[in-house]
Amino acid sequence: MTQKSDPKFEALLRLGDNALILGHRVSEWCGHAPVLEEDIALANTALDLLGQTSLWLEYAGEVEGKGRSADDIAFLRDAWDFRNVLLVELPNGDFGQTIMRQYLFDVFNRLNLEAMKTSTDTRIAEIAEKAAKEAAYHVERSEGTVIGLGDGTEESHRRIQDALNILWPYAQELFITDEVDEEMAKAGVIPDPKSLQDAWNAEVRGALAEATLEVPEAHFGHRGSGKDGRMHTEHLGHILTQMQWLQRAYPGQEW
């Protein structure tokens, strides 16, 4: 992480990049979901996340003050400048893995946005006000599907339990606090992620129990490396080649 960077700019990149990368991942299901209804629902979620991305990154560009637009930030940075958590860049896997990743993120996103509604930064409070309603629906949908699959057939239970085993350690990165978070929390701009962890645990563990799923015992969790840009998985570069190729091949192209 570059120490010189404005912490608010960093924090806004984290919010924007989480939504951007997850939105892109979810959009990969478009035309491929197991049923039509789910296909449309996933596309709606992806579009909500893309809308949130544009609000966060537009503001990030303004805070940075170098004249970069949301599009510039989304399409003209390379992997090392991205600040999303590793959880959201992981491949979709099967439908169960996509939905479990969505659920683990959705609950965090809703709690975070709810808390940001009272941010001392009015722009952040306004964005949170709008995005929290979308996130509340995302949770309703992904939670219901996790419970349905967990408490479903033998195969659906096995697959969603496998997904939980893979994703649980990654979800822990959501709650790692660093100096950017501390500074933002102290100024009342964005809550300290740690302050959301108890509520997240209570809610998620409750739903997973209802889904008859077992939370992995291991205390192992991925260290913060995506959110401060120290290291991403190999998957992020592959996402970017797809997501950014048009702007890279035809710079400045608009339609």
Partner: peptide
């Protein structure tokens, strides 16, 4: 019309398919 496993999911699917 649409397909759904139960009434609650049918409401959510309807929201996503017909009120976009």
């Amino acid at each position: 019309s649409l397909h759904a496993p139960d009434a609650e999911t049918a409401i959510k699917n309807a929201r996503d398919v017909y009120t976009r």
